[in-house]
Design a protein around this nucleic acid. Structure first.
Length: 246
DNA sequence: ATCATTGTTATAGC
DNA sequence: CGCTATAACAATGA
């Protein structure tokens, strides 16, 4: 079950297939797969929660949604929604959505917004949030894939707690230094998530997600479903300050 | 068996 | 048109 780091983790397992020949692409996903027989897979990369499989002139994205997964050289009981077959290996995707694009990934995705990309640009993200989302709840902005590509519900909860900001704070009321810090902390926690992926320790190491008491004060953690993104949100009102315009 | 879940998109309705 | 609410999709483990 995937947030951005999950995709990066999976890619580590298949990166060696970059530059090799795809014998066949298949699966029940309704994507145009013309020109994918006996062709070189030029590049395997990601943007946010999307895998990117690049061929000459076109590429596919694979998105795992909430329940998707990837297996290499193994099959599940259910049919794969997408697979790439190589001479000796096979990548299987389950419960995933596939989209074909004509052109190059950089024409569609801006790596400066990808939390796990070296190009991630904290200053750009800060100015985009100020430019576009002044009246929004910070909890919603942290789930916006156009701003924080790869962020998900766990990352959002952890980043807000670690930054001591209440998810229902309004962007315009958050002081510059606090908002900049939130962006930095979000990126840092995303890498922590990546380092824990595959160990089964993500929820265990979380400070607030899935917890009932605050690790700082032992006080009760509240569960709310705020804003537009009505996902489960954990809050310690003692630690997390709410910023509202006067 | 029932419930919840690391996500997104299409559609209806105001 | 723009916003929001709702449904829809589907696998797995507690």
């Amino acid at each position: 079950m995937p947030e951005g780091p999950t995709i990066v983790y999976y890619i580590q397992k298949i990166k060696h297939l970059e530059g090799t020949t795809v014998l066949e692409a298949g699966g029940y996903a309704e994507a145009d797969r013309s020109g994918t027989t006996n062709v070189k897979l030029r590049k395997i990369s990601s943007h946010g929660k999307n895998f990117i499989f690049e061929f000459d002139g076109f590429f596919f994205t694979v998105h795992l949604g909430l329940f998707g997964s990837m297996l290499v050289n193994e099959e599940k009981k259910v049919n794969a929604s997408f697979y790439l077959k190589f001479r000796e290996e096979k990548i299987n995707f389950y419960v995933s959505r596939v989209k074909r694009y004509e052109g190059k990934p950089e024409d569609f995705f801006d790596s400066r917004t990808d939390l796990l990309h070296n190009d991630f640009d904290e200053k750009l993200i800060y100015s985009e949030i100020r430019r576009l989302h002044q009246n929004k709840l910070v909890g919603d902005v942290l789930m916006d894939q156009n701003i924080f590509a790869g962020s998900g519900n766990i990352i959002r909860n952890e980043a807000l707690f670690r930054s001591k900001i209440h998810p229902e704070s309004i962007i315009s009321a958050i002081p510059a230094q606090r908002l900049k810090q939130l962006i930095t902390v979000t990126k840092e926690y995303t890498y922590e998530f990546l380092s824990l992926t595959g160990t089964g320790k993500i929820k265990k190491e979380a400070k607030i997600y899935g917890k009932s008491t605050c690790p700082e004060h032992g006080t009760e953690i509240k569960i709310i479903h705020p804003g537009k993104v009505k996902r489960k949100t954990y809050v310690c009102t003692k630690c997390q300050k709410i910023y509202h315009p006067k």
